[in-house]
Write a protein that binds this DNA or RNA. Structure first.
Lengths: 242, 242
DNA sequence: CGGTTGGTTGATGCAAGTCAACTACGGTGG
DNA sequence: CCACCGTAGTTGACTTGCATCAACCAACCG
């Protein structure tokens, strides 16, 4: 969820002069600015906070008055069901934002996967900032839009792919986010259970599929927290994203 | 995806006077206005179009210059994968909007499930309208936010639920959208294959689970296109949404 | 009528879940 | 330093839920 180009309905690279107007099209592409770029404006109201591994950052039952930016560490965003089942909506990495979309209508719990350092902004502060600044609200649209895209891609993974394909998709997405390519070493800060809950699998199946990818020489596993992307072509063939 | 209350980060019903300001909080609740309420302003540029059952309204490979409002009929929003697999992101009913989020960065194809009458607005028109009107962009945020909520709930269905639970969730969601309650008759405009592709199941399993719900007396099936919600409690117990 | 389309049901196979044992690693303390 | 423990991951044996393959049924229609 970086700063890649992102445009929704308002944007238009097309030059359909149809409805006239010489004004340049309202381009929502996030190339220069992102939501995060506006946060420094309220940094005086922010605090830094440390969270230990597995500590809860905010809880779905206890709506948070803050928005967050991850400075270091990895966070899982999850939902717990009444019967105890959980699913992990997404993992958030260094630089990612959270709390903008998640509450109050998206009940989600954020937990530290690793020890984390997090910048915490009072929501009221941010809201005030956004009230007076249309650019921020545009960025908010981008942020939402990016989240929706991620969600839709994940729906394909959950709805159509089999276990090995899911694991391959997961590794590729992480690698893309880190900007890695063939031969690079990918670190997996989250445990197998977390991966399983994200992919709609069990921990055993997840582990087996990772092993299978090793046996097929698509990856190497120097240790359980790191993976060398030996053959990304093979992974991509499995994931077969559109 | 109607006009229910919908608020994202900007909104705040809480009265945290922290960051002061006597201005009322920027409330994004969609209670009075929805995105659709603004469309009449450009109705002069709109056309009405009929689509026959199974006809394509817009294609993921062929980005559309229009936004749409469904007047009558049901539409499926789907994604086709290179290998032919498809999944159905969602079904859209009378009154729903589409094309705002779906393109150009959300490749999706819209197809008529039943014969449809659709109001078609040039995108450029809508963009122009949105450029000058902050309220519309606020509504766009609501629209996106609602879609994201739907997507996240569906991710739970796909990631955690088993076949019968999925079918129960599906029926309940349709019933909620139609505002139905116990004993009411729900019509299923989409075929079993469509339901299956939405739920990540096969057509046979879907059919079997619907039969199972009949056998358990949770529903009645007067004909394959209609379902009587005999015991919504039983359905809810199965779906077990948070 | 026969053909076609969409839905249901049955028989069987397989992918993934379950249950359980075992391994590897990282403390922590004797 | 090693013995012990707790946690996390892997692997194996077995079970099961869903997919697959195939037959059958019911509407609908020329």
């Amino acid at each position: 969820m970086g700063a890649q180009k992102m445009a929704i309905s308002l944007s238009t690279a097309r030059n359909s002069a149809a409805f006239s107007s010489n004004r340049p099209p309202l381009d929502l592409s996030c190339a220069p600015a992102t939501l995060a770029d506006f946060l420094p404006e309220i940094r005086d109201y922010a605090t830094r906070q440390c969270f230990n591994r597995n500590e809860t950052i905010f809880n779905q039952d206890d709506p948070s008055d803050y928005v967050y930016r991850i400075l270091t560490g990895t966070v899982r965003l999850c939902r717990y069901m009444p019967d105890g089942r959980r699913y992990i909506v997404d993992f958030l990495l260094e630089g990612d934002l959270m709390g903008f979309v998640e509450s109050p209508d998206m009940p989600a719990t954020a937990e530290a996967v690793t020890d984390c350092l997090i910048q915490v902004y009072p929501r009221e502060c941010f809201d005030q900032l956004a009230r007076g600044n249309a650019a921020i609200r545009t960025q908010l649209l981008c942020h939402l839009s990016a989240n929706l895209l991620t969600a839709q891609q994940h729906m394909f993974v959950l709805g159509c792919q089999r276990a090995k394909e899911r694991v391959a998709s997961f590794l590729l997405r992480l690698a893309d986010r880190e900007g890695l390519s063939c031969g690079d070493r990918l670190s997996l800060p989250m445990g197998r259970q977390d991966i399983a809950d994200h992919l709609g699998l069990t921990i055993e199946t997840t582990s087996r599929m990772i092993s299978a990818l090793r046996n097929e020489e698509a990856i190497l596993i120097p240790n359980s927290q790191q993976i060398v992307l030996r053959d990304m072509g093979a992974l991509r063939a499995l994931a077969a994203e559109a």
